[in-house]
Design a binder for these strands. Structure first.
Length: 835
DNA sequence: GCAAGGTC
């Protein structure tokens, strides 16, 4: 019998550390095995995986898209191979002589599969060690201790359900993706993908766009009157009873509206015919799960992707709980008073926490999803100081704290007052609401709690009509899905998971299927959905997931096997391919046409081809003639952002306007030909002699605008003399009267006409460039490397790496070993990007 | 180089 350690395996490092702390009574110590954290105490070791450390894929001989027919993938074998080599190696090393192994991965289906993958890795090197499974839904003293006192066995059926999903997703996704990409000859980075989750999500967006396109607006009118009691005036709206006896405000006939308005205008007073008061309780919201968190963060301006990334950072830093959860019910272990106590001394939250603690009984709200995965998102008792966080991080942190506050706060109360009055036979109504008890709104200001005023009036009272108005309106098409609405809808449809839904949306952006925010589908997206609807309907239908869920349930219950389910699915895909292969050429043409339409700006003014958006080898965008190389006509595009073709076009040149998408710096470029002509008209402005060739050849320095839109100070003898100085990309350049004594050049000032940014006195362009270069020597600073921020730089310094040169010299594995949460690959990435 | 699912 081996005397080796007992090995505990968790799904992630963070969980490993916390479980080790609980089980060891905080005595566990961290050591590094193969660059992976291992927590050690007594005869025990605890290691965290990084989710799936093995992946499924086809064998390498199926890698070449052109050599293998997509249909062949349906029956191709599927391998499992390590994707996190260092973790797998560490796991093998530790399990070789383990006396017992305990799988402590997350308590959900995917966690069971990850546990089974770990189990198989253990078995490869140790065929006799006993392997147990523990399950707990939150990492608290009580739950963890209890789980380890009552170990269970791995549920192989549940894991097999997860494996079936892996296989089906791979086979359908890979075969169809390759088919569509090959048919449209899109083989580079711009392949055309479909999948069980991205398919229906994309169809959701495309369907909404179809509704918008098909929408036929209808005219209607609404009538309003200002009523006055004493000095208080309020607005009331005209309504009538429709055929069904329901109240209606919209008047659909113009003549009717005009007639009613005539009457209303003639009325001098209105008599109150009914007054109704009622109080409504407004209960505080449920705890955050991922979807609701993303939604709330969205309402304060964060994209789903950004919100999750900040949440991830706050979680890793220990300030809030795990951000990926379906659960909206706090675990019993959570003591709201204790958690509130942690906030009482805080400058921002102290008063609110104190006032909440004054409640006699604290009963947190609960949502509808009680799951075993993780607790709802809430702050931990460990508080950051405001200076520890960036502004965005703080804003998101505050949201999470305040949501927790709201869930333990009192209900609010509203008083609604509805008044109906009669003016010359026309009915008018006004709805007022007053917040009579602030309740949770006092600690959670993210919901709208604005009041609308209607004075206290009584039945029979006469009110003066002080003003009347008729508004002509039109019915509006349905609104596009925003990112958070999309994620909510995906959740309702049962597609994707809490951890992947935001990634799926990002993927649609990456594939050029959607653009802008709220996302709009491209022509390509429409074509992909159309082709799928015709030949592979299941891949754009939520039914595929519903069916898969049912099959997985069956496997979990032991009523079906993995083979049954995957075999049936493969047969269905075979059928799909029969239809698809017959029409491959047609599908390809349709996709290609859409791809081209997404890029076309208009007609080339010098040939009868189209002008399309192209990307240069260096990665910058420009507009070029599709007839290249016969026609070499080009137009420049700004170098910041990704071009988006707008619907509106230039009246003079009949070219589409272009918008440059660059996050917050997004701007409309307009007609590319107009822009190019403007740039050509600007004459180079001479500001002095060229220091390089001025004396000898009379070269002069001038402010020049390049066709790319960038500006510089350059020699007029270019290209014979290439002396140049850079100028900032943004802002208007102003040449001042003041001269630089040293270089005899005028000082330059940059002004920002379209923003409130303060002007920037750049000064003499030569002095400015010298200063700039002096700063650049500090490219030796670690922070100048992409991926290294302030905190990482500190960690690197602690590991003995002071600057970029020493980072480049470092041995990746050795350095990774010295740094928490940094792998050798990351170090290599830094090294290459430092070049 | 394909998917979706973990995690960073």
């Amino acid at each position: 019998m081996s005397k080796g350690p007992e090995l505990i395996i968790t799904e992630k490092d963070n969980a490993a550390r916390r479980i080790a702390d609980i089980l060891s009574g905080e005595s566990a110590e961290a050591e590094r095995v193969n660059g992976v954290n291992v927590y050690k105490w007594g005869g025990k070791r605890c290691i965290g995986l990084s989710g799936h450390v093995v992946g499924v894929d086809f064998p390498p001989e199926y890698n070449d898209w052109r050599d293998v027919e997509p249909v062949e993938l349906i029956g191709a074998p599927i391998d499992k191979h390590p994707t996190q080599e260092n973790i797998v190696a560490a796991l093998r090393r530790l399990s070789r002589n383990a006396r017992r192994v305990v799988i402590a991965t997350d308590y959900d289906r995917e966690g069971e599969l990850i546990g089974k993958e770990a189990y198989e890795l253990v078995r490869e090197v140790n065929d006799s060690v006993p392997v147990d499974r523990v399950r707990f839904s939150s990492i608290t003293d009580r739950e963890v201790t209890e789980a380890f006192e009552n170990p269970d066995e791995l549920d192989f059926d549940l894991a097999a359900a997860g494996e079936a999903r892996q296989i089906i997703d791979l086979v359908w996704g890979a075969a169809l993706t390759r088919f569509l990409s090959l048919s449209a000859r899109q083989l580079g980075d711009d392949f055309i993908s479909v999948g069980r989750v991205q398919g229906p999500t994309l169809k959701l967006i495309v369907d909404r766009e179809r509704e918008i396109d098909a929408f036929d607006p209808e005219d209607y009118w609404e009538l309003f009157a200002d009523l006055q009691k004493d000095a208080e005036s309020f607005e009331a709206q005209y309504f009538y009873l429709d055929e069904d006896g329901n109240e209606a405000e919209r008047v659909w006939d113009g003549d009717d509206a005009e007639k009613a308005y005539e009457t209303l205008r003639g009325a001098e007073a209105a008599t109150v015919t009914s007054v109704r008061r009622r109080t409504r309780t407004d209960d505080p919201p449920a705890p955050f799960n991922t979807t609701q968190f993303i939604r709330a963060a969205g309402s304060i301006g964060y994209s789903a992707q950004r919100a999750m990334s900040i949440a991830e950072d706050l979680y890793t830093a220990g300030y809030m709980t795990y951000p990926r959860t379906d659960n909206t019910v706090y675990p019993e272990d959570l003591d709201p008073r204790e958690l509130l106590d942690a906030f009482t001394a805080n400058r921002t939250f102290g008063d609110d926490a104190q006032s909440l603690l004054e409640r006699e009984e604290i009963e947190p709200t609960a949502g509808d999803n009680k799951t075993t995965d993780h607790p709802p998102i809430h702050p931990t008792g460990e508080l950051p100081s405001r200076a520890d966080l960036t502004e965005d991080e703080w804003e998101v942190y505050e949201l999470v704290v305040r949501r927790f506050f709201a869930t333990v706060a009192e209900s609010a109360e509203w008083e609604h007052l509805r008044v109906v009055a009669d003016a010359a036979g026309l009915s008018l109504k006004a709805n007022g609401k007053r917040l009579v008890k602030e309740g949770y709104h006092a600690v959670y200001p993210y919901f709208n709690s604005s009041e609308s005023f209607v004075p206290d009036v009584e039945e029979g009272e006469e009110l003066a009509v002080t003003d009347t108005e008729m508004e002509a309106k039109q019915t509006q098409p349905p609104r596009r899905y925003g990112q958070s609405r999309l994620i909510e809808t995906m959740e309702q449809m049962g597609i994707g998971t809490k951890a992947t839904r935001h990634d799926v949306i990002q993927k649609l952006y990456d594939r050029n299927y959607i653009e802008s925010d709220p996302p709009r589908p491209t022509r390509l997206a429409r074509a992909v959905v159309e082709a799928s609807e015709e030949f592979a309907e299941l891949i754009v239908s939520e039914e595929m997931t519903a069916q898969l869920e049912a099959d997985m349930q069956a496997i979990t219950r032991g009523e079906a096997t993995l083979d049954d389910v995957t075999e049936e699915s493969r047969e269905m895909l075979e059928d799909v391919f029969e239809g698809l292969m017959e029409s491959g050429e047609e599908v390809g043409k349709h996709l290609q046409k859409s791809l081209k339409a997404d890029k076309t700006v208009g007609q080339c003014p010098e040939s009868d081809h189209d002008l399309v958006i192209r990307k240069s080898r260096r990665g910058s965008y420009f507009i070029g003639c599709d007839g290249y190389p016969d026609c070499t006509y080009t137009l420049p595009l700004p170098s910041t952002g990704k071009p988006l073709i707008l619907e509106e076009s230039c009246e003079e040149h009949d070219l589409s306007h272009v918008k440059m998408l660059a996050g917050r710096k997004t701007f409309v470029h307009g007609c590319p030909l107009c822009k190019a002509e403007e740039a050509d008209e600007e004459e180079d402005l001479v500001i002095g002699a060229c220091p390089e060739c001025g004396e000898e050849h009379g070269g002069e320095l001038a402010i020049k605008r390049l066709r790319s839109g960038s500006r510089l100070v350059g020699c007029t003898r270019y290209p014979d003399c290439d002396y140049s100085l850079p100028l900032p990309r943004r802002g208007d350049i102003e040449v001042t009267d003041e001269d630089c004594e040293e270089h005899d050049l005028p000082k330059i000032r940059i002004t920002y006409e379209d923003s409130d940014r303060e002007p920037w006195d750049l000064g003499c362009p030569i002095c400015n460039y010298r200063e700039y270069q002096a700063e650049q020597v500090d490219g030796s600073q670690l922070e100048s490397v992409t991926g290294i921020g302030e905190k990482t730089a500190e960690k690197l310094k602690a590991a003995g790496v002071e600057d970029v040169p020493s980072l480049k010299e470092a041995e990746p594995d050795a350095l990774a070993d010295l740094m928490d949460g940094v792998g050798p690959d990351t170090v290599r990435k830094w090294q290459t990007s430092a070049d």
